[in-house]
Amino acid sequence: MDTAFLLRILPVLLEGLEITVALTALALVGAAIGGLIVVAGRRSRFAAMRGVTIAYIDVMRNTPVLVQIFILYFGLPEIGLFPEAFACGVIALVLQNSAYAGEIYRAGIESVKRTQTEAALSLGMMPRRALFDIVLPQALRRVLPVLGNQAVVILKDSSIASTISVTELTQAGKLLLDRSAAPYETFFMMAALYLAMAAVLLGGMKLLAWRFPVRT
């Protein structure tokens, strides 16, 4: 492997990596919050609200991110909206992963016994406080590993933004591949950088899981 070449392409890839990190970070935060909205809708006391949320989850689960990105980027201009490519990437990732995060939260909440809520209510807590202070902390701890895996999925799916020319890591690599004659080096470098980011995400989750262990 040609190390001089590697050093030459590294700055280009690192520029792409910056955008990948930004995409992923924004999508992570957006999906973490969006998931709360989804789970609230899914557990709403109003049947119509539950129905709308179920339909939303259904649509998101059953269509590819690629299609969603194209609808946002190429479809929206037809109705007079012109979002930037980067924004389209973030929004598509948030839309799709809010649905997944919501379902993960819900699984966590449903795994906490009803008696925990009853104990909290019997101490005079309002239902919302019982949920946020007693049930959610336990639920989130239980689903931390699943959330960690989903975070890696978000990181990986951010590469799909390359299809609408966001010059994140994948697009940066593709451009290099297009004009250089050394495909392996570029490819391995890209893969290594993604792996490093995935390792950081999973490591972060492990740290959280260590700091907030599941207790029974």
């Binding site: 008696t115 925990q116 009853e118 104990a119 909290a120 209510l121 019997s122 101490l123 005079g124 007693i134 902390p137 336990q138 701890r141 907030f212 207790r215 029974t216």
Partner: peptide, 16 residues
């Protein structure tokens, strides 16, 4: 409920 305490058969302490 804040004025009425309840103790359960299964304790129901908050494990976290």
């Amino acid at each position: 409920r804040a004025r009425v305490g309840m103790v359960f058969q299964s304790y129901n302490l908050f494990p976290h």
